[in-house]
Design a binder for these strands. Structure first.
Lengths: 366, 366
DNA sequence: GCAGCAGACCGTAACGGTTCAGAAGCCGTT
DNA sequence: AACGGCTTCTGAACCGTTACGGTCTGCTGC
């Protein structure tokens, strides 16, 4: 570990050049363009560098000059560590990391806790572009990202004009799921959804709040459910929607409990995420409700745990989404018109959905 | 989104200063030291910046001057996306992310796939320090990190002199677990371990390979097992050790199968990770072996899934490890003697360990 | 004997900021 | 009138590198 000689200023390209009696250009070339100088001189440069403890060109100075940071910024606007709690976020991260890796780019996670609205971290990030994942439309960090003159890709939400976008058709996907539930015969249902705004509201959601939700994805999914059920003759005003700020199994369970307490006759609980649905399953079993005989539960996302549980849900290609976001960003050349990629989803009919009590198909045993 | 006026060069601090007829210093102060200029002038600066589309001081140029990048580098030396597959790695990342967030620092994931030995990504990373997580001792990326004149913290492995370190006492921890298994009466055991070097070797491991393992953690755990069993009169030469390059449930299952095929009489399988142990459980059930009656299985790490399964294992505070690594790094001031933090572990006696067939404690029913 | 050319190396000008030691102006004090 | 102190703003140095457009040397070919 040849750290620079203590007591002396650390070596720079210039000091190394001076020591060698060559120009800075030559030293630079020794590192970056071996073909631009003779092998002998190059070896002499590199050897002397070792002796002097010169660690090679400073990355920051190089970035300034070349206008390339070699890294992609990721904005999540949650406690940064949230990214590592949520299965969907992890998979997205993985996809994005794959894309970055392929391109030899680093992935710079920007600290952006929702509490202290410290936008400085966005300003301070030395990156070549941003990926924004699932932030509310009125997020100040998002605004800060958009102010920077860098290519940006937004995943999921919010849909902003003039910025590249990758996501799914949430409205259509959940509508398909809703129709499946409707066809099973369910008329009296309840809904569990994720946070609709930056303010905490753990409880029932008014129609107004549904409409003014700051998260496009949640808004679209609720609207999809509403459209499907109203088309089936269900008055959406009568459908209880319970919101949870935090996204965890326990919160799903608690939300389901809240719903079942107020509206015990529901025969199906539709959740806008798998995690909430898995929590609802826990709560159901705690109450002695059999799924799907006594209660139908559906999710959204298709996380591994949900597929293992055979939850009825919508699978979306989260990994692809992350990778596509990265590829989109890294392939940005000229600022043409913003691109938008919509990925496919798949309805997964698992074992947590069936007709409501009294509506079962007749049983013709062997 | 006031991007800079097209057709003109993007605004800089200098051009903004010229436009305003003030010095660059003043513009800089407007952003960084509001108390250094009159509120009116500051407002004028900021307003004009908005009009001109000046996005604020360039982060890279600032970093060059201040010699602070505002980010911590993380070296994993796996496909970058590996970090998001392994539960332990995720938890470590979460802890590290928490520490970074508290300090307002970004987290820069360095792409370092083991295949292409492209050390450039390490040289190119504009960061204030590195955290190195679980890489082999002979990794070229590690060497590249150590060559950079930056504070560095190594987590788990390798133990390198002169660099800060955080980890656990793997040797002692697994020894305690081994003694638990020994006390249950097991004499005929097998071992599953993770990769021992950068070369793939999916199969049985020679003693020589055990000794020359390039992963300190695995080497220490194997040594701990060896010492415990030899102390109990078991000849370590007779103990089959199966290695797996990839770290997944399936690989654990396959490794267990390989072990059971060759050595069907083993009464216990000790694994150096929970993931391998969980895989072994799968394989046992596939073979109709009841755990723990027919087979004892133990793990190491204490990941959530293992605790849920009530696996007998060693719990280590992975999240704390990540956080400690970050705190250590970010608190580095002067390069005193290298610090080393050893975290506590806990033996968890789950439901996957019991005495071997014929050695059960006598049963005195109620 | 000289034009032409390739290879090897170099000088200068950015890149976009921050910082520090003052200067200018203004006010109140002695 | 001289002085000190305060606020506000400035000039110049510096951070470490790479891009650009050269120059210089020596050799080939005729």
């Amino acid at each position: 570990m040849p750290r620079s000689t203590p007591g002396r200023r650390p070596a720079t390209l210039a000091s190394l050049a001076a020591e060698l009696g060559v120009s800075r250009t030559t030293v630079s070339n020794a590192y970056n363009r071996p073909d631009q100088l003779s092998p002998e001189l190059r070896k002499r440069v590199l050897d002397t560098a070792r002796v002097l403890g010169y660690p090679g060109p400073d990355p920051v100075a190089r970035s300034l000059r070349t206008r390339k940071a070699g890294a992609v910024g990721l904005l999540l606007t949650e406690n940064l560590s949230y990214a590592f709690r949520d299965p969907g976020a992890i998979e997205f991260l993985e996809g994005l990391a794959l894309a970055c890796e392929d391109a030899g780019q680093g992935l710079h996670l920007v600290p952006a806790s929702p509490e202290r609205e410290d936008v400085a971290s966005v300003h301070r990030a030395g990156v070549d572009g941003f990926v924004v994942y699932s932030v509310p439309e009125d997020d100040p960090h998002l605004a800060a990202v958009l102010e920077r003159p860098l290519p940006t890709v937004i995943a999921d939400q919010p849909r902003a004009a003039s910025v590249d976008h990758v996501g799914i058709d949430d409205h259509a996907a959940i509508q398909r799921l809703a129709r499946h539930v409707i066809e099973l015969g369910h008329k009296h249902v309840g809904v569990l959804c994720m946070r609709l705004g930056r303010d905490r509201n753990d409880g029932f959601v008014s129609l107004a709040r549904q409409h003014s939700a700051r998260y496009h994805v949640q808004r679209a999914r609720l609207a999809g459910l509403r459209d499907a059920f109203e088309a089936a003759g269900v008055d959406w005003n009568t459908v209880a929607v319970v919101e949870r700020f935090d996204h965890s199994l326990d919160d799903g369970a608690r939300a389901a409990g809240q719903l079942l307490d107020r509206d015990p006759q529901v025969t199906a609980i539709l959740c806008t995420s798998d995690l909430l649905a898995l929590g609802a399953l826990d709560e159901a079993s705690r109450r002695g409700l059999r799924v799907p005989q006594d209660l139908t539960v559906t999710g959204f996302d298709g996380i591994a745990e949900a597929l293992r549980t055979e939850l009825t849900t919508v699978r979306q290609p989260v990994l692809d989404k992350g990778r596509t976001a990265g590829e989109l960003l890294l392939s940005t050349k000229d600022p043409g018109r913003p691109r938008s990629v919509t990925l496919d989803t798949e309805l997964i009919t698992g074992k947590t959905s069936a007709g409501p009590r009294g509506y079962e198909e007749p049983w013709f045993g062997p």
